[in-house]
């Protein structure tokens, strides 16, 4: 297999300008099949916009090249279910009829879980349902905008751990936007620092190296591990 075939995504000179404001500038990176890439950066850095450009949901210039026959699963940061009386089964049925199978993939095996109303779920359960939704088409790449948004502190790690298990089982490539810097090192293998342009691209294990977080965030972010030490 040639080196070219191993890349599932190649982004070349990607630029996004919205309402006369430069949101992303000269973005270049490549992702290999099976990678788990964490995208980190300060608020307003253009992380969500990057996803939307990759999905071709917003106007952009430059090249976004996906591998042939790629199937993309996408989980947005926010969904509005507060006012919608929709059950988990109904929501997942939009994607596939195999609702129970999808729920078991995300460790939601309770017998009556599918009949629960989406607006009654906890933040953690809702994120898992969204992952189940994204997995229904059996994608080979998953774009996940803040997997732990709205999830309580204790449940963050279990979501990352579940995503990691999924990757090991199915070999799915994942791109995650996250603020959980303390989980990046343990559960992801690549890191992309973004602040309108790419501020870092390399191994996630380097996140604890002196100066790197300063470089990505512009100010020091303390790791939980460091605080305990």
């Amino acid at each position: 297999m040639s080196d070219q075939e191993l890349f599932i995504l190649e982004v070349t000179n990607l630029n996004v300008v919205l309402q006369n404001q430069v949101i992303l500038e000269n973005i270049n990176f490549k992702i290999r099949k099976g990678n788990l890439l964490a995208i980190v950066g300060p608020n307003g850095a253009g992380k969500t916009v990057l996803f939307k450009a990759l999905l071709n949901l917003i106007p952009h210039s430059g090249k976004v090249e996906w591998a042939k026959n790629v199937k993309i699963g996408y989980v947005p940061q926010e969904i509005s279910v507060k006012d919608v009386p929709i059950s988990v089964r109904e929501f997942l049925s939009y994607g596939d009829k195999y609702v129970e199978r999808a729920l078991s993939l995300v460790n939601l095996d309770d017998k009556n879980f599918a009949e629960k109303s989406l607006n009654e779920l906890s933040g953690g359960h809702l994120r898992r349902v969204l992952i189940a939704w994204a997995l229904m088409d059996e994608p080979n790449i998953l774009l996940f905008d803040e997997p732990t948004a709205g999830v309580d502190v204790g449940s963050e790690e279990s979501i990352f751990s579940m995503l990691n298990e999924l990757r090991k089982k199915s070999g799915i490539t994942m791109l995650l936007i996250t603020h959980d810097v303390h989980l990046v090192k343990e559960y992801t293998d690549l890191l992309l620092g973004l602040n309108k342009c790419i501020t870092y691209f390399g191994e996630s294990s380097k996140i604890t190296e002196p100066g790197l977080q300063q470089k990505i965030y512009g100010e020091q972010v303390c790791l939980i591990g460091d605080a305990e030490a």
Partner: peptide, 17 residues
């Protein structure tokens, strides 16, 4: 109906489909 509801839940989700 389903397409409209999905758009209400998340426009991005609907567009990505």
């Amino acid at each position: 109906y389903n397409r409209l509801v999905l758009g209400m839940i998340s426009e991005d989700l609907a567009l990505s489909k």
